[in-house]
Design a protein around this nucleic acid. Structure first.
Lengths: 347, 347
DNA sequence: CTGAAAGCGCTTACAG
DNA sequence: CTGAAAGCGCTTACAG
């Protein structure tokens, strides 16, 4: 049990004023004479008074907190660096603004919607982040129905009443394809994220467009989940094809790292026999041999900006959409010129 | 703006009873006749009444939330799988208990202490998790001073008033060393986490004890941070030594993965020239070539149990300490018998 | 500039 | 079994 903490009433008594005046003084509102204000502040200091956010929350009908709901299978951690970085960026803004982050991790879509709803009806948060957008994303309508401010990462497909903070990932994919094309690759494949996810299908489309723009034949595309295990399977399938690709563009780093493992396991030398690119710039990819060429996204900034935008929405402003600097391709060792075309198939 | 939501007063009016009785009925407390209770519940349902947690929090002096503070450099994400899994486990318990998780991510120790303090004095949480214990960990005393229930992951060194939920990681390290010794390795090194962290120094001690128990000469130990980049540097140093090890036991997976990269880059074949083991069982390690032998810890269960224990503490019970099943060694491809001893040094 | 009062939406003794 | 009232710790009109 914490010992009973002083309340505003104790401060008022000590300063010899009313509770109301204490509140005014503490919140720097006009209408308090300098001397009285000083006396009140002094009393609060002496008593070690700390505002009780719960009481404040009830009075002003604000939670002073933001909600983030993450959907993922708890048993399968892909080592995806996005959320840790994103959250770190969010926190950087929140701490100084006196806000907190309420985090929900849920296993599936039904639980996800329920989590958003509960966060809001419980009055736990004043606004929510909507990440990992999907086609026909039910969360937009839900947030609108609940009347809660929200910010989306990227633009949803349907019209949305919420500001979007976007980072163009297509430029990064295009740069990867161009880089590979420049190295002489023609049979380039893409291991894509699930089509139901906007960034899955958007990166895929970017890949297809970049291939066309480079004058290359339509590349092979394997759609799968964003997990390492799926990247491995997709790679195995691609390498088993008679027209096996000489380069593979992966939609994220865990898939690419697993793909690298599969290729090496099959006896291919990366990058000489097969070039590989990832996406999202995981820390570990930099230390592999060969180090992973990837598309770097600044998830920390994304989190910080999204938090700022959400806070402004909550404050009643209408922030409008924000475009972050596009993701950029970071060539490392896993991409190289095609050596002589080989017809060797993989067992 | 959400439209004004019905309050308990609206329900009372509709049911024709007092607010107090509504509260009793809604909280399933005795002293309400079945018919009245039914009438009240009916009214609440018709009105779509939802409890306002803010008001409840103020009344009962509870936040219905738990706090987790994570310290890490936002720019350096190691792909450490521990926290995502741990949090997923925590959430599994919280959702059903009507509790929420408030997360703080901070860059350094000063900010960490400030974050705990703020979480508690703001009355945002009813209890806190203390993870990544250090020597002379100031957080124990702080939590005690703040009078907030806490649960520690592992046993702090100083006497602690809080229940500990522990997972013996020494058994896993010992198993790794035994495995390597059984394969004929004698020059085994350990890339350790920082000595200031309990699990850093504990794993190191476990390594040293296991070496002695196996009748091997004291192994080389390099102490460093838990990041991939540090694992890489430590490995480079070890491999440059004239008496370079034939096996390296790493204190976590990101370090081991980076070490694998360094070894391969130096022209060593893993596991033939160098065996490698990790710790924590990251998803991606399984898909490398060679796949990473590691020590698997069940972070999801750890989170779930810690949450349960903390909830019981908050409820006024005295849970006592809990020991989880020990971490276990998972041999994969990165460990193999020593081939002929080689004196080849690495450039 | 200052005070006294009502209110936020709940819970909880205290009486009947 | 039920009601009326006070209280949690703040904020905020409303009067003076």
């Amino acid at each position: 049990m914490p010992t009973a903490r002083p309340t505003i009433a104790d401060v008022a008594q000590r300063a010899g004023v009313s509770k109301g005046l204490v509140s005014f003084a503490l919140n720097d509102r006009p209408g308090v004479s300098p001397q009285t204000r000083e006396r009140i502040l002094e009393a609060a200091r002496e008593l070690g008074w700390q505002p009780n956010l719960r009481a404040r929350a009830l009075s002003v009908d604000r939670a002073f907190a933001l909600g983030l709901v993450i959907m993922r299978d708890p048993e399968i951690i892909t080592g995806d660096p996005f959320y840790p970085s994103f959250i770190a960026g969010v926190e950087r803004e929140l701490a100084s603004a006196g806000q907190a982050l309420v985090l929900s991790v849920v296993p599936d879509e039904a639980a996800e919607l329920a989590a958003y709803r509960k966060l809001v009806t419980d009055r736990r948060v004043d606004g929510v982040f909507v990440t990992d957008l999907r086609h026909d994303d039910a969360r937009i309508a839900l947030a609108a129905e609940l009347g809660v401010p929200a910010v989306t990462l990227g633009h949803p497909e349907a019209p949305s009443p919420f500001p979007a903070v976007s980072m163009d990932d297509r430029a990064g994919i295009a740069a990867a394809v161009d880089h590979l094309a420049g190295l002489g690759h023609r049979r380039i494949a893409h291991v894509a994220g699930p089509d139901r996810m906007l960034h899955g299908s958007r990166r895929r489309r970017a890949f297809e467009e970049a291939m066309a723009a480079a004058g290359l034949p339509a590349g092979m595309v394997v759609e799968t989940e964003f997990r390492a295990v799926d990247g491995a399977r997709a790679t195995r399938d691609l390498l088993a094809r008679p027209d096996r690709p000489t380069a593979i563009v992966y939609a994220n780093d865990p898939m690419a790292i697993a793909g690298l493992g599969i290729a090496q396991r099959a006896g291919l030398r990366v990058p000489h026999d097969l070039s590989i690119t990832g996406f999202d710039g995981s820390d570990v990819g930099e230390h592999l041999f060969p180090s992973l060429s990837t598309v770097a996204t600044d998830a920390v900034s994304w989190g910080a900006v999204a938090a700022r935008v959400l806070l402004r929405s909550i404050a009643g402003e209408e922030p409008g959409d924000t475009d972050l600097p596009p993701a950029r391709f970071v060539p490392r060792e896993s991409t190289a010129p095609v050596t002589e075309p080989t017809d060797r198939t993989v067992p």
